[in-house]
Amino acid sequence: MILKLLENKRLTIGLLVVFMLIYPFLVGNSNYFMTLFVITCIYAITSMSLNLLIGYGGQISVGHAGFLTVGGYSVAILSSTVGLPFFLALPLAGIMTGSIGLLIGLPAVRLKGHFLAVATLGFGLSIPQIVLNWDGLTGGYSGLAVTKPLMFGSDFSLFYVFVVITVIITWLIQNIVKSSLGRAFIAIRDSEVAAQAIGINISFYKTTMFVISSFFTGIAGGIYGYWVGFVSPNDFIITNSFLVLAMIVVGGLASIPGSIIGAVLFSVIPHFTDSYIGITNIVIGIAVVLIILFKPDGIVSLFKMNKQKLVKPAGKGELLVQGGEKENANI
């Protein structure tokens, strides 16, 4: 019944928006719960960006937390060291992270599967090390403070700004994956040969995917910096990259709602398990294993199944051949 109701897109989105608007009041303006919500937004943006790259484009990245770190430090440097205002610093952080994404994307274009995985893994591992050792710019171990924007006096209004930004980014990414650009990404994932034959420049679009994905992830990192007011080298390490990867597979590959579901799930689990040391990893790990064993297409497939039954035209059985679906991403 609830599943049926959630299929109504407008209703679901409307409910979500109302929930986000009243959330601070629900939790009594508690700083802890507002932070939990913002962290969820950050992971939602990151997992949508990663899903664009992996789920839609078929290009693996196991180092996406590196882009979060770059975004966070960009905001710190731009706001504190350079002194730029919020509305300049945040998009600039995205652009700076996007440029790093371009640098990573250029060699990554030549690599496939495990080779790409190890290259991006190296990136994710290296960023914290570089940040740690580039004292002059990053403050090394001690991290950097982020100047909070004065125009929104309290965390309360900042919360709404970030919610609005998250909603806008969701809309932008949704538009991109539904467009000719998104189709080019999927085409590359499904058949590079056919993609080239219909005029898709593979290297260009692979690089573009990396740039778009890292741009939005950089913004997410920037949101983190502004919300916490402080960035340090170990905020986002390689295990965070793994976590985002788990989010998109568990939520659902090539699905924006799936990315969000995964992000919510894995951001909220630690809230319930944190009081027992070491349990968080076990619970998340078991959740990952179980969901993939029993719902290989992710949680989002729970919703889609009912839908497909409705869409399938009746009486066309003889034309339809049950074909095995091709593998998703070339990893």
Binding site: I54, I60, G113, A117, F242, L245, A246, V249, V250, L253, I277, G278, I279, T280, N281, I282, I284, G285, I286, A287, V288, V289, I292, L293, P296, E327, N328, A329, N330, I331
Partner: peptide, 24 residues
Amino acid sequence: SAPPLNQLVVTLGLFMVFNGLAGL
């Protein structure tokens, strides 16, 4: 016969389980 990415993420999940259990 699952997609390779699913397999990879399952081993990541096991990674977290074993690490947590060993700590316990």
